[in-house]
Design a protein around this nucleic acid. Structure first.
Lengths: 244, 244
DNA sequence: AATGACATAGAACACTGTTCGTAAAGGGCG
DNA sequence: CGCCCTTTACGAACAGTGTTCTATGTCATT
């Protein structure tokens, strides 16, 4: 028998054994352009998210893009959460993990975090799916394994390394989610999206008297690029780690 | 005229001036038990979230709890996002901000973060609303002002303090969101929710051979209480700060 | 007393994820 | 070759969601 979506999902979580069987049967649509595989679903889903953001990724929208109805997707995907998990798995699979080097472990872990950030920001809002996804996915675990290897090579205690990985992953996800939300809000609220920084500074400066520090340091609070803040926090976390 | 929900919301974002006018008119329900004010909406919303989680907070559920229809809520609240903003505003209003003390600035900022964490975890899943809420809310800004004052009293450079506040807030929100998601998943997936730690450890130990570090340090990866991880990361960030 | 303002809802719209039942296509078998 | 039966595909529908239109009943005011 060909693998049901449930079996596929279990295999991704190292629960069941691998099931082969290619199964290239065709349906009532005859010789269509594309036989609607899981791969096709994932790639078109990424296309939608990249173009219109994660909020636009609905089962109906995805089905329309594949020229079919929503019910057809459920033959290849358990549900929306399963699709989300497939997406973040694919995303994590794109991360290149360096071979651990004790001399440059900080630069190596920064590289992994930066790759994750770039991938997340490339597909706006997809980090929301990361929060909902269970951490037992094999592709996700692969990134964790790579990060753990880097930190251990850096001489960190196992417990410190484990918790640091958790913190870094959590921060990267949250950072990308916030950036994505801010961008969609900026582009949808008012027509003029350019005055984001200037307007924020002006508002902070126009606050009442019981916000003295916020008023005085409005420039610092609203200043800095996206990457500035990211680099600052990652550096903050890594500087606190007692590495070799 | 009585303030429309839009005017209320603008006032919360320091845009318009304050508008008084209590306006105790009654509707077709006559002398009902409660005249359905914004305050009543907020408090019952908090009750729903505290009991059943943020996912259960729908406009219909909230209206049913208030013994009315969904449309009645829109006379007091702009939309669901506005309600979310009211909730996190109220949440932030509960935070007690210490008067800055240069000697104990680390303990003070930890206290604020811990208060935020406890408030968020008390209402499971509400941190999702925090990500969506604009940072220009007055109640939110009050907490930011307090944190900024503490860090400045600690001798930090304004730019460092500003970015550190951002990082800390972001991490606290993400941490609480992840904890809430994990808890709801654990309680809804299978009947036996007790074996969370043991099962996670067993799965990590049963991984294939290409996960050597994850297998070896499964105990460290799955170990530690919720507060352990929280304290670790907050400490990590604060230790990186060059304070007095 | 009549009037107009206003909080209150009932019904409906456009969505969402998901499932049921059915129709079409292909391979394995007699 | 022709039949059956598994597998895939998909239209229709269900239970939800946020939101809006419209009408209704009640109050304070003229």
């Amino acid at each position: 028998m060909s693998p049901t979506p449930e079996q596929r999902r279990a295999a991704r979580h190292q629960l069941g054994t691998a099931t082969a069987a290619p199964a290239t049967r065709r349906g009532p649509s005859g010789g269509r352009k594309k036989p609607i595989t899981v791969e096709a679903i994932i790639s078109t889903a990424f296309g939608i998210v990249e173009r219109e953001g994660y909020d636009a990724l609905t089962m109906r929208r995805l089905a329309t893009e594949l020229e079919t109805g929503p019910a057809s997707l459920y033959a290849h995907v358990v549900n929306k959460d399963d699709l989300d998990e497939l997406l973040i798995g694919r995303l994590c699979a794109e991360i290149t993990l360096p071979t651990p080097d004790p001399a440059t472990w900080r630069a190596q872990i920064i590289s992994v975090c930066t790759q994750l950030r770039d991938q997340y920001l490339r597909f706006p809002g997809i980090s929301r799916a990361t929060f909902a996804a269970a951490p037992s996915n094999l592709d996700t675990l692969r990134v964790g394994e790579g990060m753990l290897a880097i930190l251990l090579a850096g001489g960190l205690a196992p417990q410190v390394a484990a918790w640091a990985i958790d913190s870094l992953n959590l921060y990267v996800n949250a950072f990308c989610l916030e950036v994505s939300v801010a961008r969609t809000r900026r582009s949808s609220s008012e027509d003029d999206w350019v005055l984001s920084h200037a307007e924020a500074l002006e508002r902070f400066a126009a606050l009442p008297e019981d916000f003295p520090q916020t008023k005085r340091y409005a420039a610092e609070l609203t200043g800095g690029t996206v990457t500035d803040r990211f680099d600052f926090t990652i550096g903050l976390m890594l500087d606190g780690l007692p590495g070799a």
